[in-house]
Design a protein around this nucleic acid. Sequence first.
DNA 1: CTGTTTTTTTAACATTTGTGAAAAATCGCC
DNA 2: GGCGATTTTTCACAAATGTTAAAAAAACAG
Lengths: 192, 192
Amino acid sequence: MQVFKNYLERFAKLNQEEWKLIESKVKTATLEKGEYFLRQGEVNKKLGFIRSGVCRYTFLNEQDEEITKYFIREQQWLSGGESFTQQIPSENSIQALTDTEIYVIHYDRYRQLFSEIRDWAVLIQRITEFSFAEKVKNISPMLSQDARTRYENFLRTQPDVVQRVSLGHVASYLGITQQSLSRLRRDLAQQA
Amino acid sequence: MQVFKNYLERFAKLNQEEWKLIESKVKTATLEKGEYFLRQGEVNKKLGFIRSGVCRYTFLNEQDEEITKYFIREQQWLSGGESFTQQIPSENSIQALTDTEIYVIHYDRYRQLFSEIRDWAVLIQRITEFSFAEKVKNISPMLSQDARTRYENFLRTQPDVVQRVSLGHVASYLGITQQSLSRLRRDLAQQA
DNA sequence: CTGTTTTTTTAACATTTGTGAAAAATCGCC
DNA sequence: GGCGATTTTTCACAAATGTTAAAAAAACAG
């Protein structure tokens, strides 16, 4: 769990007691490739943190296709956002794209920490802000870029993900069809 | 300030004392059309909340064009995100698109509230999450939609904004050229 | 009002991306 | 190792969007 502790301490110092408390509430679990951590319509009862593996966060578009909003990889959170913090049904799903090892904390125990650890709310606020900003920073510029630029930036910023997920999922994330991405790769390869 | 108080109370109850304390730290200010609330490269020293008007949150793309990431309107926050909470230089700018009246709180005073109001951190955490989720929910599906669908959804979800900002800014937000948006409108008008 | 600047529209053409269908390659399982 | 299922590639053509340039319309300042 050292990695998880280090991660948290990037956002706020924790004394030994506090860490013991957190550790006592965290379990480990695994997701098999293809398995869902959260399904659209469910209430998200647990928060996950990836130790190893890649997942995808999805939503259904108007045509009921499951679109990949973003990938979640090592040292990132599996969370349904408001579905977790407000315990309401989720509009999104989270699915493992590889076998995935995670740390898990249940909602009730998460809630307890607000009264048990003085700066817990501050820690959570910083993490929330950081995590959202990370996603927005990746996704937002894509709208004004052509497919090729989007793919090149994806390769640059998330090179590890490309290797581990299928082309179709990448295409979905980039907002283009699988065929277009395939063509794009050919063109890029020919140039080089 | 009643509107501002009501807004905050959607996220956490405030007793009279607490509200007085907040109120005492908040000032009103105005931005003229075209004026910047925050400039890229600056440290964001104050948090704003719009009483009336529309602004835009922007970033510079690879070609050094100022792209509109999203619009900010009544009852939404003017904040440079991590530039404010961590007092670091901002990658983004915020510019008024109409004359805008805002409530303002300085970073130092904002910080004080963490020790002065018991649930301030919780309040801020909820607002952070809500605000980000609001943006992401609008922006994220756009990638997998064609320009026409994006524009129609924009009209539906932010009808008030269309009236108040120039076509070019809308086009920038939608990720298309001004000419394409103009053409799109003509086609839509002809259909009706 | 009038001239100037900014914004919006229009048009012809180039380029990019989508579509539908099929072949090729790869993967997973027995 | 082989076979069915899945994923990736390829292709021809259609549709959407970008580009460049110019005209028209609207907003603004004096």
